[in-house]
Design a protein around this nucleic acid. Structure first.
Length: 488
RNA sequence: GGUCUGAUGGCCGAGCGGUUAGGCAGAGGUCUGCAAAACCUCGUACAGCGGUUCGAUUCCGCUUCAGACCUCCA
């Protein structure tokens, strides 16, 4: 648990050493999905980024409480006062209960995150299950004079807040700029200023999702849930708050304002944001209509996809880029990731076949040390993976008899490689579950026949066997000491 | 319009004031009955123009281009 771990803090825009408030405990809060649609690649990036953080912190010896919310209270479609929220809208279109929608898409989200080997968070609170906490927090903000009532709704008074505390500290905005560059406001009659945002919204008659409150039957504003639920489960101060970069403003700036307005201080000490996945240079997003869902990636059922991609390929593809860089989707890039991952996994399987010697010509200790150095530098997974590939070469060379390794070092290597690959990067060998055990006896038989043919220099027969097996996805490799095979 | 970020070889993608990123694709070689796999070798990329410097892809300025946020958004 050396605390030389550095992370990029969005608020200071610089690399900072990570020092937890109460080591070895770490409190981590990440904004989860709004469950009104199928998860797409963007959701995967965010989930995988913070899954990596979660795993790496645990690997580093921390006890992490990881909270990731499910937003099942519909947000308004836009900034206007009137309008339908997304979940209600979807419910109306599909003629079901709003809770049916959020329940369905929550399950879908879990299903795909499980496939991507994204660990479930420690706590996954629902916004709809914390209406009381949100109402209580709104009351405090009202008491402190940073909010006002308007026709049954409660709005955050940005101007009043800004007089005491700077607003927009995360995004680096100031309210003068925001006012001067303000967009035209239409019909926002209840708000004093277009910068103000809703803490509680009075529900219009057709609005289905509603709860009673001291002010009206309505629903909480879209920034409230994170402030209320993070405080409930992680306390008024906690370590890391994460989310997608597109949430920096207004969502996280509003969240900061709410927390400061209620408690007098900020809640999170480090803010981390993952960058977007782009598609032909443009952000991939539902609203832009260029999002490919995870299901489509897994089935290949999308006009832009040349083939299906495995969940691990997607995970590896995302891990091969730094989380703060945009990552451009293309079939070529995914296919490259697929090949690279196969090579990595193959090497992991090869380790046990390495012959041992009485001395080592390789320094196994550098494997983990180099990996940590990369990860300590703001979770630089691409460098960490590059280091693993260096060892792929070493492993394959050792396997061929170039260089030596002791039995002890071999075991260290095997353990370390497995821990880093599987536990930290979360990359699991998909081929292990592809029914190898079932075909193994058959393969033994087939290869014996082929061996006979080869001994008789009956190349035609041996090649037919090889080609037929290749056709059904089993690759044969003739080596010095026999023939190996694997399912592709 | 405001705020901010980026531009790296065929593709994806790291990085840094002078030294090999890595993966995929490609070329040559070793091995092999032939393959496949593996291993070895290779390509001299850092948008353009200035500036700082002994030296810049890396620092500064300008230009061009692209993107994100300012509306729900991972």
């Amino acid at each position: 648990m050396e605390s030389k771990f550095k992370i990029h803090n969005t608020q200071t825009r610089s690399l900072e050493e990570f020092v937890p408030l109460d080591p070895p405990r770490v409190g981590l809060y990440v904004c989860g999905p709004t469950v009104y649609g199928d998860p797409h690649l963007g959701h995967a990036r965010s989930a995988i980024t913070f899954d990596l953080l979660f795993r790496y912190l645990q690997y580093s010896g921390y006890k992490v409480r990881y909270v990731r919310n499910i937003t099942d209270v519909g947000h308004l479609e836009n900034d206007a006062d009137e309008g339908e929220d997304k979940i209600s809208k979807k419910a109306r279109i599909e003629q079901v209960e709003p809770m049916e929608i959020s329940g369905y898409y929550t399950r879908r989200y879990h299903q795909f995150m499980d496939r991507l080997n994204v660990l479930r968070p420690s706590i996954e609170p629902l916004a709809s299950g914390h209406i009381i906490e949100q109402i209580e927090m709104i009351k405090v903000i009202l008491d402190h004079g940073y909010a006002y009532l308007g026709n049954g709704s409660v709005y955050f008074d940005v101007q009043a807040y800004n007089n005491d505390h700077p607003y927009g500290v995360l995004s680096g905005r100031n309210i003068e700029d925001m006012i001067s560059s303000g967009r035209t406001l239409d019909g926002q009659s209840d708000k004093r200023s277009p910068l103000d945002f809703a803490l509680w919204k009075k529900a219009s008659p057709e609005h289905i999702m509603r709860w009673p409150s001291p002010w009206s039957d309505g629903f909480p504003g879209w920034h409230m849930e994170c402030s209320a639920m993070s405080a409930k489960y992680l306390g008024q101060r906690f370590d890391i708050h994460g989310g997608g970069m597109d949430l920096v403003f207004p969502h996280h700036d509003c969240e900061i304002a709410q927390s400061v307005a209620a408690t007098g201080h900020q809640s999170a000490r480090y803010w981390m944001h993952n960058n977007m996945i782009t598609m032909e240079g443009r952000k991939m997003g539902k609203s832009l209509g260029n999002a490919i869902s995870l299901e489509q990636f897994l089935t290949g059922d999308h006009p832009l996809l040349q083939q299906a991609y495995s969940a691990m390929t997607i995970r590896f593809f995302i891990l091969q880029a730094h989380y703060r860089s945009t990552l451009d989707f293309s079939n070529e890039a995914l296919q490259a990731a697929q090949k690279g991952l196969e090579r990595l996994m193959e090497a992991a399987r090869t380790i046990e076949k390495i012959p041992v010697s009485d001395a080592s010509t390789v320094d196994v200790a550098t494997l983990e040390a180099d990996f940590r150095r990369a990860m300590d530098d703001d979770l630089n997974s691409p460098i960490a993976i590059a280091g693993l590939f260096d060892w792929v070469r070493v492993i394959n060379s050792l396997r061929q008899g170039d260089g030596k390794i002791t039995a002890q070092d071999k075991e260290l290597l095997q353990n370390a490689f497995h821990v880093l690959l599987t536990d930290v990067l979360g990359l699991v060998d998909e081929s292990e579950t592809s029914g190898k055990e079932i075909v193994a006896p058959l393969m033994e038989m087939v290869l014996e026949v082929r061996k006979k043919a080869r001994e008789n220099k009956d190349w035609a027969t041996s090649d037919i066997i090889r080609d037929r097996l290749a056709a059904v996805g089993i690759q044969i490799k003739d080596g010095k000491d026999g023939t190996e095979w694997e399912i592709k």
